[in-house]
Design a protein around this nucleic acid. Structure first.
Length: 260
DNA sequence: ATGCCTTGTCGCACAAGA
């Protein structure tokens, strides 16, 4: 079972690019972020025609997440628990059936948190604390569970081409990085680092200042797996070439393959 | 560098992104 995550930066602007990647990569499950669409206006037809079941959790203009799956999505949960006042659409979770049993999949778009000194950064930290609490609950269930998405966290200096340029950025603050590590301390495995130790492994390149041409990237899209999911892991990858396509997102897909 | 792009918005410039 191939499970992927991709921040597509607007589904309506990315229909053709997304279709091309789905046909090429053929993920069993795709977690999408920044759909930038309300559920009623999501362009479902072209993706359903490819054979995907869709569940969306959107809002007007910004944010928004979606799950695509070749097999039915069950027990859909919209929103991250723990704060009834949070109206931003950043989390959707569902189960899919596999040969090895049910797999629970969480798709997240973690708050960016910039600029520092505004209410945006404490919102990011509060959101991460809730994510840790929710993940702890799921890990305790001792079943296959994955958390995929745009974490907006650069875990370590090696995860940026020029980490010194990110010292005053919310993505690289000690508070953000500590909480990302806290997720792994629950027993979750960070998939890409467990699959590859290669340098210059990035998932995002800014549209500005020729970042892609200079390979001035950062690694901020991650997949975390519970022990029972990690036991099934047989491979992972980053579809870097997609960043070079026509009308690309500024992020590229990241995927994991499970023996399930 | 409050810059550089890209997307969405009840647009006719601006917010948000990272």
């Amino acid at each position: 079972m191939k499970i992927a995550t991709w921040n597509i930066n607007g589904v309506k602007a990315r229909i053709e690019t997304l279709l091309e990647w789905l046909k090429e990569a053929s993920p069993d499950v795709a977690c999408l972020q920044e759909i930038k669409s309300i559920d009623e206006n999501f362009p479902r037809q072209p993706f359903e025609d490819l054979g995907y079941n869709l569940e969306t959790h959107g809002q007007k203009g910004f944010n928004g997440v979606a799950l695509f799956s070749k097999s039915p999505l069950e027990d859909i949960q919209r929103g991250l628990p723990g704060n009834a006042e949070d109206s931003q659409a950043r989390y959707i979770e569902a189960s899919v059936s596999a040969e090895a049993g049910s797999v629970r999949i969480g798709c997240l778009y973690l708050p960016n948190g910039n600029p520092l000194g505004t209410e945006k950064f404490p919102y990011k930290i509060e959101w991460m604390d809730r994510l840790i609490a929710h993940a702890e609950k799921r890990v305790a269930e001792e079943t296959p569970f994955l958390l995929l998405g745009d974490y907006n966290v650069i875990p370590d200096p090696v995860d940026a081409k020029n980490s010194e340029n990110w010292l005053d950025d919310a993505l690289f603050q000690p508070e953000s990085r500590q909480r990302f590590r806290a997720l792994t301390h629950l027993g979750l495995t960070e998939v890409v680092r467990s699959c590859t130790q290669a340098d210059e492994t990035y998932t995002f390149w800014d549209y500005q200042a020729g970042a892609w041409q200079k390979n001035n990237g950062v690694r901020i899209d991650h997949i975390l797996t519970s022990p029972q999911a990690t036991d099934l892991m047989i491979g992972c990858g980053i579809d870097k070439h997609v960043r070079g396509w026509e009308k690309p997102s500024d992020h590229v897909p990241v995927w994991v393959n499970l023996a399930a």
